[in-house]
């Protein structure tokens, strides 16, 4: 009796031609192998490595933030990104919009039987890259497999925790009449990129999704203006939905100016063609900020100094209005309302 214990040979997963099957969610050896060779290999970090069912970490003092977001975008790969990086950015941004510094993420995958492992690998690696770049590790997770026809490839849910710096108090109900409204960049890029790529819309454009993690920009903004009142990333429903949410929560109205809205010419043209309004189209790497009038120019400078805020602009102000209407001065010189979108115009955009 001597020597090392002989390890059983395990055939590596075939990431080239293999497909997800029911055993990958069974809790058995196949699942353990998928976790090892795919998720652990990609996300590798000290919290994940012991392969516990949870992650244990130290909590800094102060107020914590918790946010969760599910991703069902179709198609899974689109110009400028994929469901993987989108799932990281989406939750990092949700945490950041409290003015917080995101610390950790969890990720849950719902896989459909038959989904190509090559695609899954590409998605997981994109998530890992996004998480590394954002410096927010994925510290725990879960995988389930559903029968063919019961899902659509892959759905990903991510949850994030973060901590709010001392003295920062950001919330959608804090807008006051006279406050200024700022956006961090061009509107509608993500939605138009997805639309242009959908199979039943053979529409070509050079627009790419703006998907990005905004916590760096938020940190710079909060440092420059700790009193910033509201932050939100205008995803589904676009700027129109976000301003209506702020109006409702804060009990104010808004008036914005169409000529000050940053919109890329190609997005404008595509919206024209598709009968969409850039105000209603989703963004994944932009934010809307509300601050007191005296802080606006300082905030704008801080935003423009950050690469993700280069095209930032002051687009309007909050008004006293018991009806909480969002109005817009049109480029033509008239006025109109900017309402929520009533129907699902772009299903499964994120």
């Amino acid at each position: 009796m001597s020597g090392a214990v002989k390890q059983d040979y395990v055939r590596p997963i075939d990431f080239r031609n293999g497909r997800v099957d029911m055993s990958h969610g069974s809790g058995g050896r196949a699942m353990a192998q998928l976790i090892d060779e795919l998720f652990l290999a990609a996300f590798d970090n000290d919290w994940l490595r012991p392969l516990n069912d949870q992650a244990c970490f130290a909590v800094p003092a102060g107020r914590m933030v918790l946010a969760t977001d599910s991703h069902v975008v179709s198609p899974l790969f689109f110009p400028g990104g994929d469901i993987g990086c989108l799932a990281v950015h989406g939750t990092v941004n949700d945490v950041a919009m409290a003015g917080a510094r995101p610390l950790y993420l969890s990720a849950t995958f719902i896989l459909e039987e038959g989904f190509p492992l090559a695609d899954l690998k590409r998605i997981v690696e994109s998530m890992a890259a996004a998480s590394r770049e954002a410096r927010v590790p994925i510290v725990t997770g879960d995988t389930k497999v559903v029968e063919k026809g019961k899902g659509d490839g892959v759905f990903i849910t991510t949850t994030g925790v973060g901590v709010v710096p001392e003295g920062v108090e950001v919330s959608g109900d804090r807008a006051r009449p006279g406050d200024r409204v700022l956006v961090s960049g061009t509107l509608g890029d993500h939605g138009v990129a997805i639309m242009s790529f959908r199979e039943n819309l053979e529409f070509e454009t050079t627009i790419r999704s703006d998907t990005a993690a905004l916590h760096g920009l938020v940190a710079a903004m909060v440092e420059a203006v700790p009193e910033v009142r509201c932050l939100r990333d205008p995803t589904r429903g676009g700027l129109a939905a976000t301003l209506n949410e702020f109006a409702r929560a804060s009990g104010v109205g808004f008036r914005i100016r169409e000529k000050d809205l940053p919109v890329k010419p190609a997005v404008h043209a595509a919206c024209e063609f598709l009968g969409l309004d850039p105000l209603n189209v989703a963004n994944e790497g932009k934010l809307v900020a509300i601050c007191a009038p005296e802080d606006a120019s300082r905030l704008l400078v801080a935003m423009r100094e950050h690469p993700l805020g280069r095209d930032a602009a002051i687009i309007g102000e909050a008004l006293e209005d018991p009806h909480r209407f969002v109005q817009m001065e049109t480029a033509l010189g008239g006025a109109r309302m900017v309402d929520w979108l009533s129907a699902e115009q772009l299903p499964r955009i994120c």
């Binding site: 309004d277 001065e329 049109t330 480029a331 033509l332 010189g333 008239g334 006025a335 109109r336």
Partner: peptide, 9 residues
């Protein structure tokens, strides 16, 4: 007319 606020003009 509604979207561009033409009636104001």
């Amino acid at each position: 007319i509604s979207r561009y606020g033409v009636t104001d003009l």
